[in-house]
Design a protein around this nucleic acid. Structure first.
Length: 872
RNA sequence: GGGCGGUUAGCUCAGUGGUAGAGCAUCUCGUUUACACCGAGAGGGUCGGGGGUUCGAAACCCUCACCGCCCACCA
């Protein structure tokens, strides 16, 4: 076997193994296998997405789970795929068209536009899948799916038709969230509220029946006054009680409107009077319904004012119109005052513009099975990790409202509904809903809208599987996702599973989409901001892979990913991951320099050195700790325990201690030490394989453990140390030796003796057991000799430390003392010189960087320090 | 307004009743044949504030402050 290079080279190793795994079809799931199933469906990234650190985290976790399950003997399915991302993709293409051709989608028309999207998708789509392969993801690529696949699209249509026939999907004219930029309806979940600075306008409405008397109202939206159809106050509000039933003059688009009383009004806010604008506000709409008020819509779809009656405002953008309306009111004496005001405004998550509540004819889903969905999580048929997300989930389901599923977007699943041509555009038109067009298509026209992307994703847990696959692998074992899509996706998938019952029986257990949900952290930058493309604060994972290797990136990221908290990303952590890979590599390299490893390492418990007992006991503890942490999805703890075991327990202590035997004359001892190394290296390779698949496979191969890939090697079992005598005694002795080593090293450092200088130590103790450990102590301390002398009488001033083994003395000879003196003299001379320079500069006042007094002070202090040492 | 997290060394984080920890960073020393992507040593924290429970609190309870997230129709 050729000697390994000093450094592990991921660039050479990682692609090689990945290709081999693919060629061997190692990731392909066999639905006919007799092994127990383990399955994960990948949260489908957007088709035109590129890899972010969030994806790296999420998919590394899934890969760890998949690889671990494979080693444990499960038949593993990790099903990958992509999402068409309706609005997102369409917006990207529209932006591109505007930039390059200065055209809108309407200029091109639906057919042509969709053609362009397909071209865009061919060019930019699927990149992320290739990037996931660089990361080492062990997905079954033969089963890769897309939310627009033919079969998948058919399933989406069928789900729509089924729910329509069950009366759960309906078309209705209702208040929805309108995105004036994307010009589509959105669901409640796609709205984020943000505090907005604006003004509170106090507007005076004259009472029709009592000219000269005014009703004052506080509003943030004077541009919608033309759409007011009533004034309202709280029924118990005595200030206005006498006005009930009377009328007010609407100051813009002057008109009489009724004055009403409604419980929804807060008497404490503003003047206690609300202008009721049913077309442009959710609460107002409800009030309007209760009082049978007319609905006047004064906005175009793009957010411009649509009100020819007020030409000054007509056609203006809503925000310009707001200021203009205030000016108009002022000019007419209808504006009492204006106050700066901050309130929460709903923004489109997609376009980042304020949404416009608006009455619109849309398709809605009345969620089925909400109680059941609540129950399966409450009763832990589905378990959440961390558990506190259960509460968030429950809160949403308990306050659930119908889901607006239609989008005025072209890219996506077109709604399988047709309207009788003869009756268009009446909203009462006869509707045909079916998976196939009507038999007489010439008489019908299909609904122009598409479905919310999530209306296709919510079937992802099972529509990605064929019947045979589903029978074996559904429900899936675990879902790994970020908590920000708990409503969008997680909750809806639960509902879909319970409603459509894709499982092998109709029991709840067979139909939930997953047994566990693990919510990952969110990756943030060092200022705590969420990583995002627009901020440009997200490092390119591929560059990190180039720099540190996929395994280094994976391990580094996992070690800092706490459960239930966000990650503060720091590239340093990834560097540590890379360093750890190199450390492990070198540990293996050291073993390999002493001859070939045993392909199936076994432990002869009778031959073990005390240090071997210690490291094996620690290995057992590590195996236990790792197992426990996995059960709670605490990947950071798994990573940290393995890191500590490899670096500290194995490399720093055991390997160093074992060198006594390895470089010694006793063949039996040497053999035993090497066997323990083989055993431990084999174990840690397997323990680390889920985190660092490429490196561990390479080591597995180079060290010759097992004939087959490490991917299917069984996880290491704890070593049976039962036959070893007096384990606690041995371990205690090892700890005592290690503590003595630390004490000795400390003596050396305190006396400023370089680590490489051979010196003599005297251990004042008497014990046969200690006598056997003297060579190892000598090695650890890099000593010329460690003398065991129970009667040692030290000269005054000999450095000494107390250890569990006894007192350890360090013998310094005259030469050492002389050299130390020389060193101190040199230091003093240097500082005196510096001090002179500083004081010189001080006089020329040529100081720029630091406070000169502080520098002088520091030098004086160091000088005193060294002089004191010299005195000793 | 309600809910949920968090506040421990300069930084990132462990630590759920018993002597405050790790890695990185800092400082000192070192190329002693696995590894300088390394080794050895050192310094550094009144565990956000206040109160309580307890023989004993970073941890349990109360309260306050600050940071972050989610939900909610105060115009």
């Amino acid at each position: 076997m050729a000697e390994l290079p000093k450094r592990y080279d991921p660039k050479a190793v990682e692609p090689k193994w990945y290709q081999r795994w693919i060629d061997n079809r190692d990731f392909v799931a066999n639905a006919k296998s007799s092994k127990p199933p383990f399955s994960i469906v990948m949260p489908p990234p957007n088709v035109t997405g590129v890899l972010t650190l969030g994806h790296v985290l999420n998919n590394t976790i899934q890969d760890i789970l998949a690889r671990r399950a494979r080693m444990q003997g499960f038949e593993v399915l990790w099903l990958p795929g992509m999402d068409h991302a309706g609005i997102g993709t369409q917006t990207a293409v529209e932006k591109y068209l505007r930039r390059t051709e200065n055209k809108t989608r309407h200029d091109l028309g639906r057919e042509e536009f969709l053609q362009r999207v397909l071209e865009w998708q061919d060019k930019h789509g699927g990149i992320i899948i290739e990037q996931l392969k660089r990361l080492g993801c062990s997905c079954d690529w033969t089963r890769q799916r897309y939310t627009l696949d033919h079969a998948y699209a058919a399933a989406v249509k069928k789900a729509f038709v089924d729910l329509y026939q069950r009366g759960l999907i309906y078309r209705g004219r209702r208040m929805i969230n309108w995105d004036p930029a994307a010009q589509t309806a959105l669901s409640d979940e796609e709205i984020v509220s943000k505090p907005q600075k604006g003004n509170l306008y106090f507007v005076r409405y004259e009472i029709v029946e009592e000219p000269g008397r005014f009703l004052e109202v506080a509003t943030t939206r004077p541009e919608t006054i033309m759409a007011d159809t009533a004034m309202a106050f709280h029924p118990s509000d005595k200030r206005y009680a006498d006005l009930l039933g009377k009328h007010a003059w609407r100051p813009l688009a002057r008109e009489k409107i009724p004055i009403i009383a409604d419980d929804a009004i807060d008497p404490e806010f503003g003047t206690g009077v609300l202008k009721v604008t049913p077309a442009h506000d959710v609460v107002d709409f409800e009030i309007g319904q209760r009082h049978n008020l007319p609905i006047i819509d004064v906005l175009h779809l793009d957010g411009r004012i649509n009100c020819p009656a007020v030409p000054e405002l007509n056609g203006l953008d809503r925000f310009e119109a707001r200021e203009k309306a205030a000016q108009l009111l002022q000019a007419r004496g209808a504006l009492a005052k204006m106050e700066p005001y901050e309130n929460n405004v709903g923004f489109s998550d997609r376009s980042d513009v304020p949404i416009e509540p608006r009455i619109s004819e849309q398709w809605f889903l009345r969620y089925p099975k909400t109680k059941e969905a609540l129950a399966v999580v409450r009763d832990h048929l589905i378990r959440f990790f961390p558990v506190h997300w259960e509460k968030v989930y429950a809160q949403w389901l308990e306050n659930i409202r119908d889901w607006c599923i239609s989008r005025q977007v072209w890219w996506g699943h077109r709604i399988p509904a047709w309207y009788a041509k003869s009756q268009i555009p009446s909203s009462k038109s006869q509707i045909y809903v079916g998976v196939a067009p009507p038999n007489d298509p010439e008489n019908w026209v299909q609904d122009a809208d598409t479905l919310d992307t999530w209306f296709s994703s919510w079937l992802w847990a099972y529509e990605t599987m064929d019947q045979e696959t589903r029978k074996k692998f559904y429900p899936t074992s675990v879902l790994v996702t970020a908590a920000d899509i708990i409503f969008f996706w997680v909750a809806r998938m639960v509902i879909a599973g319970l409603e459509f019952e894709p499982g092998k029986s109709s029991t709840t257990e067979d139909n939930i989409p997953f047994h566990h949900v693990f919510f990952t952290s969110i990756v943030r930058d060092q200022q705590g901001r969420k990583m995002s493309k627009s901020l440009g604060n997200s490092p390119d994972p591929l560059e990190l892979i180039d720099k540190y290797g996929a395994d280094g990136l994976r391990f580094g990221l996992m070690r800092i990913a706490p459960t239930g908290q966000d990650i503060r990303f720091d590239e340093k952590q990834i560097e540590e991951g890379r360093n750890f890979a190199t450390k492990l590599w070198n540990a293996a390299r050291f073993r390999q320099m002493h001859g070939p490893s045993d392909p199936a390492p076994k432990i002869d418990t009778q031959a073990l050195s005390i240090f071997a007992v210690e490291v094996l006991a620690r290995l057992n503890e590590t195996i236990d700790a790792v197992e426990t942490a996995y059960r709670e999805y605490q990947f950071n703890i798994v990573a940290q325990r393995l890191y500590d075991f490899v670096w500290s327990d194995y490399c720093d202590w055991f390997v160093e201690a074992a060198k006594t035997d390895i470089f010694g004359e006793d063949d039996a001892k040497k053999k035993s030490a090497l066997a323990v190394m083989d055993f431990v290296l084999s174990a840690i390779s397997r323990l680390l394989h889920p985190f660092m698949p490429h490196l561990t496979e390479e080591l597995w191969f180079l060290l010759g453990f097992g004939k087959a890939s490490i991917q299917f090697a069984a996880p290491p079992q704890k070593v049976g140390l039962g036959e070893v005598e007096d384990i606690p005694g041995k371990r205690q002795l090892v700890l005592a030796v290690y503590q003595t080593v630390q004490a000795g090293r400390n003596l050396r450092a305190e006396s400023n003796l370089p680590p490489n200088r051979k010196i003599r130590f005297i251990l004042r103790a008497e014990s046969k057991a200690i006598f056997n450990q003297i060579p190892t102590l000598t090695r650890f301390l890099n000593a010329e000799e460690v003398e065991l002398n129970p009667k040692y009488q030290a000269a005054a001033g000999t450095p000494v430390a107390i250890t569990p083994l006894g007192e350890i003395f360090m013998a310094i000879d005259a030469a050492d003392k002389a050299r130390e003196r020389e060193r101190l003299d040199r230091e003093i001379a240097k500082i005196e010189n510096d001090l002179q320079t500083v004081e010189g500069k001080l006089q020329n006042s040529s100081f720029t960087d630091r406070a000169p007094a502080a520098v002088v002070e520091e030098h004086r202090r160091r000088l005193a320090d060294f002089t004191a040492q010299l005195g000793k």
